[in-house]
């Protein structure tokens, strides 16, 4: 049963990759990557059941946190074209200049 479910997860991940390749907007791709990451976490959990080594779930926990940070980092980069800037600083600068976009 777990094997079948893992196979279905792989199909779902392939669908996400198709959306990632087709785009068309940057945000579609970010959404696809983020969703793909969530599926990867679950896939890792299922896979560690499949090979009967529960240590794999630790990796899944790590991946779930890194996936979130990665998504936010990509979005930040494409908004400010730089990672070398603190978000709080940007908010402050906007507030000072009275620019609410």
């Amino acid at each position: 049963m777990i094997f079948v479910v893992t196979l279905m997860m792989t199909v779902a991940m392939a669908m996400m990759l198709a959306r990632l390749l087709r785009g068309p907007e940057l945000y579609d791709r970010v959404l696809a990557v983020n969703s793909f990451g969530t599926k990867t976490v679950l896939f890792l959990c299922l896979f560690s059941f499949l090979i009967d080594r529960p240590d794999g779930i630790d990796i899944a926990i790590l991946y779930s946190l890194m996936n979130f940070i990665g998504t936010i980092a990509v979005l930040k980069f494409f908004r400010y074209r730089s990672l070398d800037i603190a978000l709080a600083q940007m908010a402050l600068r906007r507030a000072v200049s009275g620019d609410h976009e």
Binding site: N34, V41, I57, I61, F68, T71, L75, R79
Partner: peptide, 23 residues
């Protein structure tokens, strides 16, 4: 550990989704 994975996913996924939509 699986419950922990669930908690992390439930805390981060709405924030990530909102971040993408907001961007």
């Amino acid at each position: 550990k699986l419950a922990l994975v669930g908690i992390f996913l439930f805390l981060t996924s709405p924030t990530a989704t909102h971040a993408v939509a907001n961007a």
